[in-house]
Write a protein that binds this DNA or RNA. Structure first.
Length: 464
RNA sequence: GGCGCGAUAGCAAAGCGGUUAUGCUCUGGAUUGCAAAUCCAGUCAGUCCGGUUCGACUCCGGAUCGCGCCUCCA
C-alpha cells in the first residue's frame, strides 16, 4: 500500500489514484540559463527513483517535467553573452541532458517547453480575465487578482491579509494590489515576444506550469512535485490559476524534495554557493554522487560535503565488493522475487513515502548474506541478482564491479603497471620472498592502490 | 513578525510506545605468511524540563538551539 507525504495536508496519506493503476506526475523542471547544480540533481534523482519504483510496482506513470525556456534571467544572460536566447537555452538544455545521462536519470515521458505552449498560456489567461480572476493593466501586462481566489494560501498556510503586511512587496502603480502576480508580461524593446490580445509579450513563470500541466496531465492530476523553494509562491500561484480557470481541484498530492545545503546554508543560485553537477563529477564518480542523494530520504535536507561523498563511496564499495565475483549476473526479474523477504522489505520501505534509506538498510543485510553465501554458488548468484534488481530501481549498482572499484581516487599509476607489479609480487610470494612482496604492496598502497589476496580469485586490486 | 520543519551514538541516517535499524569509524576474535577484504562478537544514542503510561528515543505540553519559506531560486 503506497503512502505519500502530501505537502498540502502536511501528513502521509494512502495514495489513491484518479484512474485505477495510473499516475499522472508533473514535476517543475529547470529554468535553462546555466548549468544544473546539485540542488537540481537532488530533485531530478528523487523523482527518477520515484518513477522507477512506481513503474516496478506496475503503476502506469505519465511523468511530465517541464523546461522553462523563456524568462527574465534567460533574456538577461543572453544579452550579457550577446547570444540569441534560443541559442542559450538549447545549449543549456543539451548540458542538462548530458548531466542527467551521467547520473543515470531517465528522461521524463514528456518534457514540455514553455515556448511551445504560448497559445495555451494565452487561452488560460483569457479565461481568468473572463472569470474576473485576472485583469489587463494599462501597460499591457496581465495580472492575477489574488484576492479573487478565496483559497489562496492553502498550500503553504498563508494568510492573504498578512501577505500584504509582509515587508518585501514592491510598490507598483500598475497593479491593482501589490499581491497580484503577473500572467503575461508586455515586451520591452528588443525582447523576444509573442503576439497576444494584450499586445506583444511573454508569459509569466507561474502560468506556464498551469498551462503545460493542463495539456499534459489534465485539469486534475495525481502528483505534482518540485524543489523545496517552490511551494510559495510558485505552487500556490499554480493552484490559484488552475483551480480558478478550470473550476476543479488542481492536484491531489504535492511532493517537495528537501534542500541541499553547503556549510549549513541552503545552496542556491541567488546565494552563489552552488556546485554544478559538472564541478562535482570532475572529482567524483557519478554513481557516488547519485548514491549520496539516494542515501537519505528525499524530503530531508542533506549537507553537501567531501566527507559525505567519501562516505557514499565507502558504502558503494561495500556493495560492489560483494558483487565482485558476479559481474555477469543480470538483475533478477521482479516477477521472480515476489516471495523474497528482501524484496518484501524493500517494497515496504519504498511504499512508505519512498524511504530509500530503509530500503538501503535491507540491501546491506542482503550484502551480508551474500558474503556468507559465497560457497553456495547457486544461492550466491541468486542473491547477487536480487541485489542488482534493487540497484536497478535506485539507479545504482549496474556497473561492472571491478571497473567501479578500480576507477576511484588518483590514476597516477596505470592498470598495466599495477598488473605487472602484482605478477612480480605473486612470483615473490611463490619464492617465499615476503619482504619483496610486502614492499610491492606497500609501494602500491602509497599510490592509492589496495591489494586483496583471495584463495579463490587470486590477487585483486582496487583504488581507494 | 507570519507559516513550517528539525534536534538520535565519534560521523552519517531510519523506523518504532516495551524486542539488533543500517553504513562508516572504533575494540576483540576468526581468517591471512603478514595484510586487505570478509565473517562473528562488542562499545558508544536519543538537546533540556514537565506530563500521559505498568513502560517513551517514540505520544502531549513547554523551553533552548538550528534550518527553510514569506523576493527570482530545485
Amino acid at each position: 500500500m503506497l503512502q505519500i507525504y502530501n505537502t498540502l495536508t502536511r501528513q502521509k496519506e494512502i495514495f489513491k489514484p484518479i484512474h485505477e493503476g495510473k499516475i499522472s506526475l508533473y514535476v517543475c523542471g529547470i529554468t535553462v540559463y546555466d548549468y544544473c547544480h546539485i540542488g537540481h540533481a537532488r530533485v531530478l534523482v528523487a523523482f527518477d527513483v520515484i518513477t522507477r519504483f512506481l513503474r516496478s510496482q506496475n503503476w502506469d506513470v505519465n511523468y511530465v517535467r517541464n523546461i522553462t525556456d523563456i524568462d527574465d534571467k534567460i533574456i538577461n544572460r543572453a544579452k550579457e553573452n550577446s547570444e540569441e536566447y534560443t541559442h542559450l537555452t538549447s545549449r543549456f538544455i543539451q548540458a542538462m541532458h548530458e548531466d542527467e545521462k551521467s547520473l543515470e536519470i531517465k528522461r521524463p515521458d514528456i518534457e514540455p517547453r514553455a515556448t511551445a505552449y504560448i497559445q495555451e498560456i494565452i487561452d488560460m489567461s483569457k479565461i481568468l480575465i473572463e472569470k474576473g480572476h485576472a485583469y489587463a493593466a494599462s501597460n499591457g501586462d496581465v495580472y492575477y487578482r489574488v484576492t479573487s481566489f478565496a483559497d489562496y494560501g492553502k498550500l503553504t498556510n498563508k494568510n492573504v491579509d498578512e501577505l500584504l503586511s509582509g515587508a518585501r512587496i514592491e510598490v507598483d502603480e500598475i497593479k491593482e494590489d501589490p499581491r497580484d502576480f503577473v500572467l503575461w508580461k508586455a515586451a520591452k524593446v528588443d525582447e523576444p515576444s509573442w503576439s497576444s490580445p494584450w499586445g506583444n509579450g511573454r508569459p509569466g513563470w507561474h502560468i506556464e506550469c498551469s498551462a503545460m500541466s493542463k495539456k499534459c496531465c489534465g485539469d486534475t492530476f495525481d502528483i505534482h512535485g518540485g524543489g523545496p523553494d517552490l511551494p510559495f509562491p510558485h505552487h500556490e500561484n499554480e493552484i490559484a490559476q488552475s483551480e480558478a480557470a478550470n473550476g476543479r481541484k488542481y492536484v491531489n498530492y504535492w511532493m517537495h524534495a528537501g534542500a541541499v545545503r553547503v556549510d549549513g546554508e541552503k545552496m542556491s543560485k541567488s546565494l552563489g554557493n552552488f556546485f554544478t553537477i559538472r564541478d562535482v563529477l570532475e572529482k567524483y564518480h557519478p554513481e557516488v554522487v547519485r548514491f549520496l542523494l539516494v542515501s537519505s530520504h528525499y524530503r530531508s535536507p542533506i549537507n553537501y560535503s567531501e566527507d559525505n561523498l567519501i562516505e557514499a563511496r565507502a558504502g558503494l564499495e561495500r556493495f560492489y565488493g560483494a558483487l565482485r565475483d558476479y559481474a555477469d549476473v543480470a538483475p533478477l526479474a521482479l516477477s521472480n522475487m515476489q516471495e523474497s523477504n528482501y524484496y518484501k522489505a524493500f517494497v515496504e520501505a519504498m511504499n512508505d513515502d519512498f524511504n530509500t534509506r530503509v530500503a538501503l538498510a535491507g540491501m546491506y543485510d542482503l550484502v551480508r548474506d551474500l558474503n556468507n553465501a559465497k560457497s553456495d554458488t547457486v544461492l550466491a548468484k541468486n542473491l547477487a541478482a536480487q541485489l542488482k534488481a534493487f540497484g536497478l530501481i535506485l539507479g545504482v549498482l549496474q556497473e561492472n564491479p571491478e571497473v567501479f572499484l578500480q576507477a576511484g581516487g588518483s590514476d597516477a599509476i596505470s592498470a598495466e603497471e599495477i598488473e605487472n607489479l602484482i605478477a612480480e609480487r605473486i612470483q615473490a610470494k611463490n619464492d617465499k620472498n615476503f619482504a619483496r612482496a610486502d614492499e610491492i604492496r606497500k609501494s602500491l598502497l602509497v599510490q592509492g592502490v589496495v591489494l586483496e589476496d583471495s584463495k579463490v580469485a587470486g590477487t585483486q586490486w582496487r583504488r581507494e
